[in-house]
């Protein structure tokens, strides 16, 4: 079951950039690529918890601002030699609005 929450307009997030959504269990970074695709992942690099939302976005990946780990936005997996992953969340754009699936976020909070 999904539970979509309207969090913002697509234009509130800069292309090749990110903004942050606060949740009860930590910050989630909402990314927008050059092709206007959006992704939601935990805003903490699996390496040293660097804020991925502040990284440079390229293709469907982001480079962590602290130590240049590259994280795939689609899978949350670290690329190259680095090992680790971050949580990803269901997200979509409808009528210029970004919708985030809150099921996992809420479930966690409740647990």
């Amino acid at each position: 079951m999904t539970s979509w929450i309207d969090i913002a307009a697509l234009d509130d997030v800069p292309p090749r950039g990110a903004r942050v959504v606060k949740t009860a269990h930590g910050c989630v970074a909402i990314f927008r690529t050059a092709q206007d695709r959006v992704y939601a992942i935990d805003d903490a690099c699996p390496h040293k918890k660097g804020p991925l939302s502040e990284g440079i976005v390229h293709g469907t990946a982001v480079t962590c601002p602290l130590h240049n780990w590259v994280i795939d936005l689609q899978t949350g997996m670290a690329q190259g030699a680095d090992e680790g992953h971050v949580n990803t969340y269901e997200i979509k754009v409808e009528n210029g609005r970004i919708l985030l699936d809150s099921t996992r976020l809420m479930a966690r909070t409740a647990a």
């Binding site: 929450i5 959504v21 606060k22 009860a24 910050c27 909402i30 809150s102 976020l105």
Partner: peptide
């Protein structure tokens, strides 16, 4: 609003 604020705060919804 465009940059420094968080996009949304779901802690309130929770």
């Amino acid at each position: 609003t465009n940059k420094w604020a968080t996009l949304a705060d779901l802690t309130l919804e929770a």
